[in-house]
Each structure stands twice: as structure tokens, then as C-alpha cells.
Design a protein around this nucleic acid. Structure first.
Lengths: 164, 164
DNA sequence: TTACCTTTTCAGCGAGGACTGAACTCGATC
DNA sequence: GATCGAGTTCAGTCCTCGCTGAAAAGGTAA
């Protein structure tokens, strides 16, 4: 049986991929197929796959693969490598870009700081109505301030050293 | 004009509420009406409102208000106070519970650690396919480990002292 | 019990979006 | 130019889900 027919080595892997996809749908708002591609590319062997192989492996239409692979490339977690000749392009996961993905996700949360600030300006920061809003604003402000430090720590301490 | 007819003090406020709602929809996956309720309760004066008042102020059906107010109560950011007699219940925002809301949101992200761990077990952590997965896993592991410290810092340093 | 007000429930509507499949575009080879 | 495979686009389908409005349920007072 040619390799590209292999859908997943074992049923457990197929289940795991579905769980990953479900997680990304819930926590990142990603389409299911995008999550499946990501999970599959994380553990498939060999690590690079053509669009046609993804389509077969995940039982998704070529159109869906195209759309979602481009979404994942836009997010930076999948890259395309082309080769000379008429060969199909190969896609691979860019596992090192993962922290950036999460960072962007969190920035969408801390981004609320700007809106709460605008609200406070609107009420001149005075009175009871501003009190509630200020409480929330101060939290987002603090959180937004912590983030740069957090990612700096990842770069310095968290990120595992190169293995060889 | 009776107070409950007032929809918003100014057009700007109505716009601000819509922006807040849009933000919650994007970043928390919350229905628009839930976000509107939250934003309105943050800045309305007086701070407590009945369901009927919310319905009027936000031009939403009683059914939607009921559903979404209960969602917000489940999340802990809105509370209900009942009074004796036939009076309607009053809803208010619990601005101090906001950090918990965000914490839960982030836990959904770090929750991926369990899935990556399961994946590594599945491949015995060996070989090339495990390498990519381990890279991602180590990031989530590190991030999940940082969170408790982060929230402890909020409790100790970030959280503004009581004002009086 | 009856009346009345508040809140919940739920069937149905409509919008949005994921997904498909086929047509089309693009590039490369011959 | 002609051909062929890969990739993209897009009209259409299906399904989910937010939302409504009306009916039902709950709860209080007379």
C-alpha cells in the first residue's frame, strides 16, 4: 500500500488528531480542518506532505486543504517548500513558531486595555460608573505590562537549548 | 422620560458597547448580547439593572437577556440580587471576578499540554516525529508552569489596594 | 384561589461559515 | 502552442447557533 494511502498509523492517532483539532477550534477559533492539518503535520513521518497527501490523509477536499493551509501559513505555523520541476509543493509544520501563535492569541485578550482606556476617557474617570470600569482597566493594564517580560523569560530561560 | 427608557447617555457610549461586545465575541467566543450586557453593566448608572431594563437598554428580547445573563453568572462576572416582594431581580457586574475570567480563558490554552503529552506517550517520545511534538509540548509545559506565578503576582503586587 | 409580574423554556427563523466539488488559473515541460 | 498536474477560486449545500417571541413556569401578594 503506497504511503499516501495511509491515513493514520493507528486508530489512536486519528483520535488524537481529532482531539487536537477540537481543541484548536475551541481555543483558537480555528476551522476543524486547519486543526487536523496542524496535528497531522506535527507527527507525520516523513514530516513534509503535499496538499494531495493531506487531502487523502484527512479525508478533506482539495479546496478545504488549500484554504486552510494558507490560513496556517498566514499564522506562521506551516511553511511551503517548492521544488523545481512540476512537483507538488511540500508543507511542513514550523514548530518553533508556536510561541508566536500563542502570543498573538493573548494579545487579542490584552488588547481590551485600549477599549477600557477609551471608556475611562469617555467618563473622565470620575464617579461610580468609572470605578467599576477602572477596576477592569487596571487589571488589563497590569496584564499587558507583564506579557513582554513573560516572553522574554521564554527566550532566555524557557526555550530549551539546541539539541544535537 | 423615565430612566429605563434611556438607552445610552450618548451615541458614543452605544458605539463603545458595540466595540466591547465585538471584542468579547472575538476573544472569548461570547455571544454579542452577552458582551453588550457586560459592557453596559460596567458603566451604567445606577450600577444595578433588572432584566427588563437590560432588554430595553440593549434592544434585545427577554429570552436573550435571560439566556445571556445566566451565562455571565455562570462565568462569575455578573451576580443577581433578589429583593423581597414582587420586585424584579437586579443584576450587577462583579468587576473583581474579571481576572478569574481571563485566567480560565488562558487555562483553555495551556490545557493543550495534556494532549501533547498524550501524543508523546503515543510515540514513546522517540524519533523525528516526536521531536516536533516535543518542541511544542515543552512550550506549553513551560507556559502552564508560569501561570500560577503570574496570578500570584497579581494578587500580591498588581491588584490595586483598596481605595477609600 | 386568583391575579399579576418576572423569568425561563423552546420552536422556529435567519445569518454566518465550514466544507465540497468542479471550473479555472498558473507554471512547467515537451 | 499544446498538454498536464498542482493549486486556487467560487457557487452552492449543509449545519450550527444566536436570537426572537410567545407560551409555560415560578413566585408573591391580595
Amino acid at each position: 500500500m503506497p504511503e499516501y494511502v495511509q491515513r493514520t498509523d493507528r486508530p489512536a492517532m486519528s483520535e488524537w488528531i481529532e482531539q487536537m483539532a477540537a481543541h484548536f477550534e475551541a481555543s483558537e477559533g480555528m476551522p476543524l480542518i486547519a486543526g487536523r492539518i496542524l496535528a497531522f503535520l506535527l507527527v507525520c513521518d516523513p514530516p513534509e506532505r503535499t496538499a494531495a497527501e493531506l487531502s487523502l490523509a484527512l479525508a478533506a477536499s482539495t479546496g478545504s486543504i488549500s484554504t486552510n493551509v494558507r490560513l496556517l501559513m498566514r499564522l506562521g505555523v506551516v511553511s511551503k517548500t517548492t521544488r523545481q520541476g512540476r512537483e507538488a509543493a511540500l508543507y511542513r509544520v514550523e514548530e518553533d513558531r508556536w510561541p508566536e501563535l500563542v502570543r498573538h492569541r493573548m494579545q487579542r485578550v490584552t488588547g481590551l486595555e485600549e477599549l477600557t482606556a477609551a471608556g475611562l476617557r469617555m467618563f473622565s474617570g470620575q464617579g461610580e460608573r468609572a470605578r467599576r470600569l477602572r477596576t477592569v482597566h487596571e487589571f488589563y493594564q497590569w496584564l499587558a505590562g507583564e506579557m513582554p517580560e513573560l516572553w522574554r523569560r521564554w527566550e532566555r530561560e524557557g526555550k530549551p537549548k539546541l539539541r544535537f
